[in-house]
């Protein structure tokens, strides 16, 4: 990976763009999940999901009051892992 660090390599700019493209892809993928668990399950489809009962919870209500929050936490840690891996792959970690 050493060769990517030296400054004026002609393909360096391509590498940077590729890194950024992959970064944006990871981000968008995770944001889709973010949107689905909160706005999707918690608001837009809450009535349909409320017909499913798990234990004492209606599923839609559970997503809105607990589930979405758990998923948010997991999302950030998944992001950390994927980005650390990507940073190493492109040799841009600190």
């Amino acid at each position: 990976m050493e060769e990517n660090i030296t400054s004026e390599k002609p393909d360096e700019s391509n590498r940077r763009q590729e890194y950024w493209r992959r970064n944006v892809k990871i981000m968008l993928g995770l944001l889709v999940v973010w949107f689905l668990v909160s706005f999707g399950c918690g608001i837009l489809f809450v009535e349909q999901l409320n017909k499913i009962q798990i234990g004492g919870f209606k599923l839609g209500f559970w997503f809105a009051q607990q589930g979405a929050i758990y998923v948010f936490v997991v999302l950030i840690f998944v992001y950390v892992r994927l980005m650390n891996k990507l940073d190493r792959e492109f040799g841009v970690e600190e």
Partner: peptide, 10 residues
């Protein structure tokens, strides 16, 4: 609940 936590993902 969702609003004040989901912002951290952003």
């Amino acid at each position: 609940l969702m609003g004040w936590t989901g912002g951290y993902v952003l």
